[in-house]
């Protein structure tokens, strides 16, 4: 399969509606397959759990009745979804960024008689020159998710003030703050204020960790 960098770049110049998209193999535009894959695993686990459930009581319909319906629904939808993705590649579109999937844009534009007027007007055009970056910024995402995981591990040991301040600071860094020292003071102020408000005002105890007794 040939790459079409040039073709797509020129296409992007021709019409402002398309962005440079490269099809380099089977997975291009098909990464969404991870969703039905996870749903299959979940539905499989659910089926196993339903089959091996230790049922108590003798009520009919019992506790396995409703989960069975949910299992069928999940399997059915996952199959249809897989077929849909295999038939048509789907590329994330910067135009639709921020668009809410809770509502069908087609339905809304029919109701408002807006026809093809864009419901979300993109505010800035992404660059189409140079190598296209992955749609999602996995590095930043990984830092934020990692910071939350680290927070959960650190909370019992370090206590609320230190671990929450650390979480705040790392998320700030990941999202592009350029003032590490200033952020550090904001972070500690924020987490200490919460600790104070909670312990004094609301009577809820947040763990103090190894600082126990010192404060």
């Amino acid at each position: 399969m040939k790459t079409t960098d040039n073709a797509s770049a020129s296409l992007a110049e021709q019409s402002n509606d398309e962005y440079s998209v490269r099809i380099t193999g089977f997975w291009s535009g098909r990464s969404e397959l991870i969703v039905p894959a996870l749903v299959f695993i979940l539905a499989g686990f659910l089926t196993y759990g339903t089959a091996t459930m230790k049922v108590m009581g003798t009520s009919v319909p019992g506790p396995q009745f409703f989960p069975t319906i949910v299992c069928v629904l999940l399997f059915l939808m996952a199959i249809i979804h897989t077929i849909q993705i295999l038939r048509t590649r789907r590329f994330p579109h910067e135009d639709s960024e921020g668009q809410n999937a809770d509502f069908s844009t087609d339905l809304l534009s029919d109701l408002a008689d807006t026809e093809n007027e864009a419901i979300y007007v993109p505010t800035a055009r992404p660059s189409v020159t140079g190598k296209r970056k992955a749609y999602s910024d996995w590095k930043t995402l990984g830092m934020v998710a990692g910071a939350v995981a680290a927070f959960i591990l650190a909370l019992p040991v370090l206590g609320w003030i230190l671990s929450a301040a650390g979480l705040f600071w790392v998320v700030c860094r990941a999202l592009g703050s350029k003032r590490p020292l200033f952020d550090l003071s904001v972070a500690i102020l924020f987490s200490s204020a919460i600790q104070l408000a909670f312990n004094a005002g609301l009577g809820l105890n947040l763990p103090s960790g190894f600082l126990e007794g010192l404060i």
Binding site: V39, L73, L74, M77, F103, S104, T105, L107
Partner: peptide, 17 residues
């Protein structure tokens, strides 16, 4: 009202689970 019937029903199923 959702954008895609299949995706909507999958979301519904996830919530029910």
């Amino acid at each position: 009202v959702s954008d895609s019937v299949v995706k909507g029903l999958m979301s519904l199923g996830l919530g029910l689970v």
